[in-house]
Amino acid sequence: MNYVTTTKQYAISFLHSDSFMPVMASVLLHAFILIIVGWGWESSLVTPRKVMPNYVEAKLVALKPTAPKKAAPKKIKKSVKKVDLAAQRHEQERLKQLQVKKQRQIAQKKKATEALKVKQLADKKAKALAVEKAHQLQEEQNRLAEQQILVEQQQQQAFADALAEEELLLQAELDAVAAQSFSGNIRNKVQSKWSRPPSARNGMKCLLKIQLIPTGEIIDVSVIKGSGNSAFDRSAEQAVKKAERFDLSGMESRIFEKYFRQFNLEFNPQDLRQ
């Protein structure tokens, strides 16, 4: 009882305190962030992730009695190898010792060169002072020359920009071609899975929105515009779900983001009765 009243009092005092607003704001902000981060996961969580294990293909084979003949010669070969191994080990140790010697020599040489360098630096400083004055004169001249170069550079830049733009356009065109071949694959796969209900007729249209992840797996299918025939719409949805994943191997992520993270499928039969 007592505890309850004290907590109540505390709660009331908190409500009127200055810290109430900021605390609420921060709690709401956190909740908002949690929702934003956790939102997209929902659909992918419902469908259990698939395990695509690495594997070795194996077939059961019955052994024929020809096998034992080979066993004997193999043993001899192994013992020969052992002798070789001992000799090799010996050789390797000799080489190691040689290397250690070489490294010592190199270290001594380094010390000598460093001493020389210090001397040279002192000389350079003296020379620099004398040269400075000459430099100032030259700089003035340089500035004039630079201005001229700048103008030239700007012209060049404009040309380069135009070139880059053209390149970008070319790139986009190439991307579109690549995307086309992938859409062809997707179309073939969906068509091979689509079994239409007998009530389907030419001219029925159903638009689906598909969401993919870069591995090609479908994470979401939704009907944007139905045909009015629910059996037809469901068959379209099922065709996509049956396809499960599309083969996107070799697709650059740029193309994926541009075209395939989210795309539409329009089901529009042409080979049926009117």
């Binding site: 239409r196 065709a239 989210q262 499928l265 529009n268 039969p269």
Partner: peptide
């Protein structure tokens, strides 16, 4: 969005 048209089925 890219729209792929499906005109045939099995």
């Amino acid at each position: 969005d890219l729209t792929i048209e499906i005109t045939q089925g099995v």
